[in-house]
Amino acid sequence: MAQVTLNALRKIYPNGYEAVKPASFTIEKGEFVVLVGPSGCGKSTMLRLIAGLEDITDGVLHIGERVVNSIDPADRDIAMVFQNYALYPHMTVRKNIGYGLKNRKIAKDIIHQKVEEAAHLLNLTDYLDRKPSQLSGGQRQRVAMGRAIVRDPLLFLFDEPLSNLDAKLRNQMRIEIKALQRRLGVTSVYVTHDQVEAMTMADRIIVMNGGQIEQIGTPSEVYHFPASTFVASFMGAPAMNLLDASVEQGAVVLGGQTIAALAGHGPVTVGIRPEDIVPDAHGDHAIEVTLIEELGAHRILHAIWAGQPVMVSVAKDVVAAVGPLRVAIKAAALSFFDPRTGRRL
């Protein structure tokens, strides 16, 4: 278990592309941090910088007490789970899990014991003598996990480990990985493009976009107080509604109606989560529902509010129909952004 500190860590590729703009943050001992963002946002590069698979252009990286900038991946005392699992196809599960220990010249009986323990923990005991090609996707995923935990590293790195699994298995493995990390208490960095994975697994989320960190916070902070319109629209499904409004004499005005108080003057982007717009016969605002998406537990109403599209999420027992609808908004749940920079006001 170790603390990981990044100080102005930066990656520029030889062709001049800046994949990671100077990034600074600290991951506490035992913390589960998820790097999330769209493809090409630099999250995988960030992970590979920590792993030592990419050279650091600038900045300082600490793992535990050591500066590891120029230390080989093998000597950083880390373990990594790859998207395609990177299992050795010609070796049995037992050999795959024990390979890292064997390379470190650990005694055979200790390897045997550690592999058995890891296999027991991951329900792989019956599959130890099979080859990866004889396993299902979920089992391969577990072997990759086993290979990581058997080494007892300072730090776990996960590079989109669930993206090759089907939806059902993904949900199951998500819980298993989280539970395992809790039990072992190893500091973990997890990369994903799936915001649901990020929300459900993380102690803290780091949202990245265009090589830059947009926001660092707990899932709740990131969800309720997005730092930018990018975070607001990336986190949460359906995404936060972003509406153009204006601030006039200390009030936010949308479609001629005041919806909240805000100091300043000029245009503003109002962010409101779909579940914070509530159908209410006595509500102050009128919207026009154009389409209803049935999701079972709840419904998404697609509507027009003051000429702008909005989504409203309602519970399954709320009666809704296409046509005009009166709604109320939870004023405390509103976010305001500068329309020019996209940053939170």
């Binding site: 792993a51 030592g52 698979l53 080989d72 991946p73 093998a74 000597d75 950083r76 880390i78 373990a79 990594m80 790859f82 998207q83 395609n84 990177a86 050795y88 390979y99 890292g100 390379n103 470190r104 290979r147 080494r151």
Partner: peptide, 18 residues
């Protein structure tokens, strides 16, 4: 031979020759 195998091996302390 997938590149990730090489990377996984590098992290597991496997020399190039091995």
């Amino acid at each position: 031979v997938p590149e990730t195998l090489r990377e996984a091996a590098a992290i597991e302390g496997c020399s190039k020759w091995t």
